[in-house]
Nucleic acid binder design. Structure first.
Lengths: 203, 203
DNA sequence: TTTTTTTCATAATGACCGTTATTAAACCGG
DNA sequence: CCGGTTTAATAACGGTCATTATGAAAAAAA
């Protein structure tokens, strides 16, 4: 019983996501969000809660809709393929939409006021979760001989993530897809090799 | 003629720099800045102009006081030493001060409101200037045989800068100096070599 | 000492921030 | 068709934003 919603909650969340993606958490005003969603202010509040809750929902939606390439990558057979898949798809995502370049995990908040500290920390945790998955995958690669025993899985994971973060900054600065692809190519040329990937000489 | 200034302009600028470094441009309120400088609001305005002008002065001071390692690096004999010097010193700068980790060039603004667009662009130009210097240095390295003819100077420069940007994000997220040093080691592990650096076999 | 000039401190400005009362409209069950 | 319930729209809330008017205090020039 009661009146129906006259707007699509999913579409409103997508619109909010795009605003946050472009302007970050603190850079996005509630006016920006309501205008993008085509919805009055109290409607957004009743549907999602306050601005912080809306951002967290947008971040979850971002992960679901745009980061599918990460679980995809983790299932590839070699560590190098995992890294390549992540880097190549990150470049694609960072440059695919001209009106919101870069990555929400970075654009959302790097530094900010004390009020934004909970959101900043949420993004830190968000990025750390991805990095931990990558580290575990590289640990496995060591046991499988796909990475040398001397490789540091945590350093490799941090290296790949540092590149994605840095390229996200560069994409937000207007770098072309081609330039970032060249960066990825450069990064992958320094990839360590294990007993089975240097050449086709092992069993 | 007239009354003397009762505060040290240089110290006030340093204080403002620290605030911007920690909270970024939009995250720093004028109240934050005046409290850190120990100076009333109109005094900051009369000394530096508005917030944007103050930020630009702080950025210039940041460059002078903390980025001396970049011109230093450019004078080193090999491209690899140039890259190593930049990356190692960037890690040091990003982790040296626990209350303002990361780098002003990134923390200052990655994304933000439309009002902050001029500052965001100024930071883009600031970073681009460093990258251009690096690219030119790598071009020279190619003519000197220090980098192979096949090396792409612009991609290498963008690669090194992407790493510094990404590590700045990670430092701001609380990454330890040791972790970032391991990232640098990974990045440098297979630097491309020219005719004189692979081993000591050339003339 | 008086005048002029600059800085100082207090406090006010209008605008925008995120968040909500409030009231009218729309829907469902009875 | 009417009572109960949910949403919609308008407008207001206190607080903070960057910026500045104002007048007192201080120092050099006359």
């Amino acid at each position: 019983m009661g009146r129906h919603r006259e707007f699509d909650v999913e579409k409103a969340l997508d619109a909010a996501l795009c605003v946050f993606w472009r302007k970050g958490y603190e850079g996005s005003s509630y006016t920006d969000l309501t205008e993008a969603a085509g919805v009055e202010r109290p409607a957004l509040y009743s549907a999602f809660g306050n601005k912080e809750a809306l951002f967290r929902l947008a971040l979850a939606r971002y992960s679901e809709r745009f980061l599918h390439y990460i679980p995809e990558a983790l299932q590839l057979p070699t560590a190098r393929q995992v890294a390549a898949h992540i880097l190549v798809n990150a470049v694609d995502l960072n440059t695919r939409y001209p009106d919101h370049t870069g990555c929400l995990g970075i654009n959302g908040a790097v530094a900010g006021s004390d009020d934004a500290e909970p959101v900043r920390q949420a993004l830190i945790d968000f990025r750390a979760a991805g990095q931990a998955q990558l580290r575990e995958r590289f640990e496995r690669a060591k046991t499988e001989g796909d990475l040398p025993e001397t490789a540091k899985a945590d350093a490799l994971a941090a290296f790949v993530m540092a590149l994605t973060h840095g390229m996200a900054v560069q994409a937000k600065a207007g770098f072309s897809r081609e330039m970032l692809e060249a960066v990825v190519e450069q990064a992958l040329s320094t990839w360590p090799t294990g007993r089975s990937t240097l050449s086709e000489t092992s069993s």
